[in-house]
Design a protein around this nucleic acid. Structure first.
Length: 322
DNA sequence: CATCAGGGCCCTG
DNA sequence: CAGGGCCCTGAT
């Protein structure tokens, strides 16, 4: 599907704002729906059922930020659509998040302060909707990175749409509920294994309109957690990701998966990953970051993954099994 | 060749 | 609350 440029949206994020560390997270593995180079991020979005190509361009600096968002589409888009899209972009990338208090609180923290200095203006954020993230969460289960990417790509290339815009060819996610006419057997043919059942049942929730991201955002964390956990195929690991990446709770940390446990053990306690620090002890350690504990760990975590782009970290390579 | 662990989760007893 | 089963893939 060939798209044409419809509009350029200008956004002024809250200060400070760092473009690259906000729009590129080295620990999110690329799988055909986005591309990044310094100062530019191409990203497909299915918004309100419309396939979009988005090009985010850095037009400012950390202390005087500005972003252009070029919107590519097959059809014209009206003002109301552009407005709702703009609001959603601001939400997903946390462009209006005020980081000042977080920075001030940990100005003297030995571990955090150098990282804050280095990544000043980095926001947490994720490009995916709840529906999309649920699918991603399912394919992350019980699999190595390579296998997860393989499963995700197979889904995208079978049920998504290939978009051509700004010289790029990127796959766009299908609509929530878009697997209505797909059977569990069809999904199994894509080698997603037992996950086929979970994917199908989650898609059903959206076909039936039982689950609404907009409604769920308005509810409190406990309710969100309860409703998400009630979904078939969604357990504590997936919920933990969702509460941070989709629902933007910075203060919540209740789960550490085995591979993350090993990395945290090395990172925070310089402990041999083969003999990891108990999860309880790790969680207790994060308590010192109070209402920003998830945000603090995000900063430390992203710093590690950016380091990995520039230098070889043998112990990390061994643990991530790409 | 066989065996097994891996960014979990569900279900059973 | 512990533990078996589920899918596929690559390492050993």
């Amino acid at each position: 599907m060939n798209l044409k440029k419809i509009k350029t949206i200008q956004i002024t994020p809250a200060t400070p704002f760092d473009f690259d560390s906000t729009f590129h997270k080295p620990d999110h593995f690329t799988s055909g729906d986005n591309e990044w180079e310094p100062g530019i991020r191409w990203q497909t979005w299915n918004w309100e059922g419309i396939n979009l190509g988005l090009k985010f361009i850095n037009k400012g600096e950390v202390n005087s930020p500005k972003i252009d968002v070029e919107v590519y589409s097959k059809e014209d888009l009206d003002a109301r659509f552009i407005k709702s899209l703009t609001e959603e972009i601001k939400y997903r990338y946390n462009l209006e998040l005020d980081l000042k208090d977080f920075y001030k609180t940990f100005k003297t923290d030995k571990v955090l302060s150098p990282i804050i200095k280095k990544w000043k203006g980095m926001r947490p954020g994720h490009p995916s909707s709840l529906y999309e993230y649920l699918i991603i969460g399912i394919v992350l289960q019980n699999a190595t990175v390579k296998r997860s990417v393989q499963m995700f790509t197979a889904l995208l290339e079978n049920y998504g749409t290939l978009l051509k815009f700004n010289g790029k060819k990127l796959w766009c996610f299908w609509e929530p509920g878009g697997l209505k006419n797909v059977t569990e057997e069809d999904l199994r043919a894509l080698k997603v294994g037992y996950r086929a059942k979970s994917i199908k049942r989650i898609d059903d929730q959206f076909v039936n309109g039982i689950l609404s991201e907009a409604e769920l955002r308005k509810k409190d964390r406990e309710t969100q957690m309860k409703e998400l956990l009630s979904l078939y195929g969604v357990g504590p690991a997936t919920v933990w990701y969702l509460l941070f990446d989709v629902f933007h709770h910075w203060d919540f940390f209740n789960h550490v998966s085995p591979w993350e446990q090993k990395i945290y053990s090395k990172l925070f306690f310089d402990q041999d990953p083969e003999n990891p620090v108990p999860v309880e002890k790790l969680l207790k350690h994060f308590e010192k970051y109070g209402k920003y504990k998830q945000l603090a760990v995000h900063y430390i975590w992203e710093d590690l993954w950016w380091k990995r782009k520039n230098e070889h970290i043998p112990w990390l390579e061994k643990l991530i099994r790409i």
